Simulated scan of single mutants.
Amino acid sequence: MPVFAVVEASFLHVGIVCFSAVKASSFPILTAGMNYYLAIIPFLGAVDAGLFGELKYEVEMLPPEDRRDDFCYSVADCRSRIPKLMDEWKAYFEYLQSAEQKTMNSAKSFSFVLDDALHYMWKAHVASIAYALPKFQDSLKYLAVPEANFGEDWANGVDFIAATHFSTDLQTTNNFQAFLPQRMLVEGDVLPSISGFSSQQNRVLVSLRALNRANRLTGMSPT
């Protein structure tokens, strides 16, 4: 797989990579907030790593009308507010650049290792969720209880997915999404027999719920 094909996948965060992409119908504040830290922060991390070369102008995002203090808007701004998270994303893109450079300088060997790239990407991705979820936890109260529970279960489950270095290519992600809910959960949706969901979808939701409960009881995490 070409190095920068992984770059493209990291920006898109297709399906499984993005906490709320699989739940596009979720509450807007929660969705937009989580996606900001899973899309814009990686982009600014890439800028910080020099992925786009020397830029003539500073890249700066326009702030939203509400909750402005929940976000940062430029490399300098984000470095002052969330330096550790920026370091994680910068390290990922620096690895990709380093591997690409070594490959171009050597006709005999290909230095890019997909598993290494996935390690850096998932480490940064989990860090984004860990930082952003508490910020937008209050938005869960606007959701139906089953949907709010799924949001927390999914965020916890990503830790386990990340530990496997799950490959986020389009085909694999597309196949995986078939086991996730195709709509928002509503009051009256009771596991393990939610109406309209396949048996596999119900089992996945039950498994995510069990993992989250186990983590809460033990205080353990796979990452």
Rank of each mutant, 00 (worst) to 15 (best):
I40C: 14
D153V: 02
I29L: 03
R68G: 12
S106C: 15
N35I: 02
Q200V: 12
K84P: 01
Y142K: 08
W122G: 02
S80R: 15
V22E: 08
G219N: 10
G50F: 03
F52G: 08
E187Q: 11
L30N: 01
F160Y: 15
L205R: 02
L62Q: 12
A9V: 00
L30I: 03
T103C: 10
P63F: 07
V113F: 01
V47Y: 08
K84M: 13
P28G: 02
A107R: 11
G45L: 04
S26R: 00
K23V: 04
S25P: 00
D48T: 09
Q177R: 14
P134A: 02
D159K: 15
D70M: 14
M61V: 15
A117Y: 00
M104I: 10
S80H: 13
F4D: 07
R81D: 00
K84Q: 14
A148D: 02
T218Q: 05
S195L: 05
L191M: 09
M34C: 03
V186I: 14
S98D: 13
A32G: 05
T172M: 11
G45H: 01
V145P: 09
I16W: 04
A127H: 06
T164A: 15
M34N: 01
T164Y: 12
N35P: 00
N215I: 01
F19L: 09
M121F: 07
V14N: 05
A32Y: 06
A21T: 04
Y131I: 05
Q201S: 03
F71M: 12
Y131F: 11
V145Q: 14
A155S: 15
M220S: 15
G45M: 04
I194Y: 07
Y142G: 05
E60A: 13
G33P: 01
S74E: 06
A178R: 15
N175K: 15
L44N: 09
V3S: 01
A155G: 10
E100W: 06
G15Y: 00
I29T: 02
C78R: 06
N175L: 12
L118H: 01
I29N: 00
S139K: 04
P181W: 06
E60H: 09
D87W: 10
A91C: 04
K135D: 01
L143I: 06
S221H: 13
V59S: 08
I40N: 15
I161H: 05
A117N: 02
S193R: 12
E65N: 08
W122D: 03
A91R: 10
V206M: 11
A24D: 07
L140T: 08
E54S: 04
S106W: 07
G53R: 03
M1G: 08
T223P: 01
M86S: 09
L38V: 02
V14F: 08
T168A: 13
R67Q: 11
L191E: 05
P146L: 09
H165Q: 14
M34L: 13
F27R: 09
L85Q: 07
G219I: 12
G15A: 08
G151H: 14
A46C: 11
L55G: 07
